[in-house]
Simulated assay, not measured.
Amino acid sequence: MDGNWVVKELRSPAGGPIPAGGRVLQGIGAGADWLRAHSEVGKAYKPGTKVLGRDGKPVTTPTLSAVAGGTPALVRAGEVWLNPAANGMSQYSCVPADLGPGEKCRSNNTLLQRHARTLAGVTASGELLLVTIDGRDPALSVGTTLPEAARVMQWLGATDAVGLGSGGDTTLIANDTLYNRPVDDWGGTLRERAVSNAVVVIKKP
């Protein structure tokens, strides 16, 4: 899409450069089918969404200019505070009986395994913290568990913090220079993983 949300191209397969001044919408699975059915080259399509609070009412404030999500919570009011269960990250994951012969449960090590981490937080003074922790390379760093990541953010002074990504997604680039060592898999080589989103910080003109 161009800067006015006019559809310029429908890509199949997905992927490719983002045009200067343009936008990209990406759908996966049924979402991709829905986007394709509701998009037409040459016509404008502007997506919309509602952000609802726990009470089901829209979240509105004159200071709200952007919203980003992460999982799980790590620090609240300066204290380590994790809410993995609320984000579907329980210590056990089960396959219901109707999807197989009997309910099958297995331990979910997402919380306690060490991986590379991408973290975000804010300090009491309003300073934004964007943190990457390398992992999957015993010679350099094995990464952190999520409780350890929470303590790192607390140590850095975050009053509130959240996880953004982990594993091979964790990549830090500043001024076109790769500053960390992203590794897709244990024992793998230094390699950036292809991802569809990023947190980008730029100077105001």
Rank of each mutant, 00 (worst) to 15 (best):
P19D: 06
R181M: 10
R117S: 03
G143C: 09
D185M: 07
A124H: 05
N87S: 12
V67C: 06
R54C: 04
S39W: 04
A30V: 13
G53R: 11
W155P: 05
K43R: 13
S141I: 04
A194I: 13
T159H: 09
V7Q: 10
R136N: 12
S12E: 09
L111H: 11
G3I: 04
P101N: 11
L99P: 00
P17Y: 03
M1H: 07
N108R: 11
A158N: 13
A139D: 10
D98F: 09
V195Y: 01
V195M: 15
T171M: 13
E79L: 07
W186I: 11
D176L: 11
D33F: 10
L172T: 03
V7K: 08
G31Y: 01
V162Q: 14
M1I: 05
G78W: 01
D98G: 07
G165D: 15
Q154A: 14
Y45M: 15
G15W: 01
L129M: 03
G29P: 00
K204M: 04
K46H: 05
V7L: 04
M1G: 13
S196V: 09
R193Y: 00
Y45I: 01
S65M: 06
P96Y: 02
R36A: 11
P101C: 00
T145V: 09
V122F: 10
P62Y: 02
W155S: 14
G21I: 02
T144M: 15
L190F: 08
V122G: 12
S12Y: 02
H38Q: 13
A20R: 12
D55Y: 01
A66P: 01
T123W: 04
K8V: 08
T71Q: 15
G100E: 02
L10E: 08
N108G: 13
V41Q: 10
K50A: 10
D160L: 06
A73C: 08
K57Q: 09
K104S: 10
V95F: 01
L112N: 13
V6W: 00
D2C: 09
G143Y: 08
W81G: 01
G3E: 04
V67G: 06
R114G: 12
M1K: 12
A139N: 15
S141T: 05
L164Y: 07
V24A: 14
A20F: 03
A86W: 02
A158Y: 03
R11P: 02
R36M: 02
L25H: 11
L130R: 00
Q154R: 15
R114W: 01
D169N: 12
R136S: 14
Q91T: 13
L64N: 00
I28S: 14
P205R: 14
A14R: 07
T159N: 14
N197D: 12
P205A: 14
K57C: 05
R23D: 00
A14Y: 04
I202G: 08
V201D: 05
G15C: 04
V201F: 12
G48S: 05
N175L: 07
P147L: 05
V122D: 07
A44G: 07
E192A: 15
T145G: 13
K46G: 11
G157V: 07
V59R: 06
K204A: 15
Y92H: 09
N180F: 05
G157F: 09
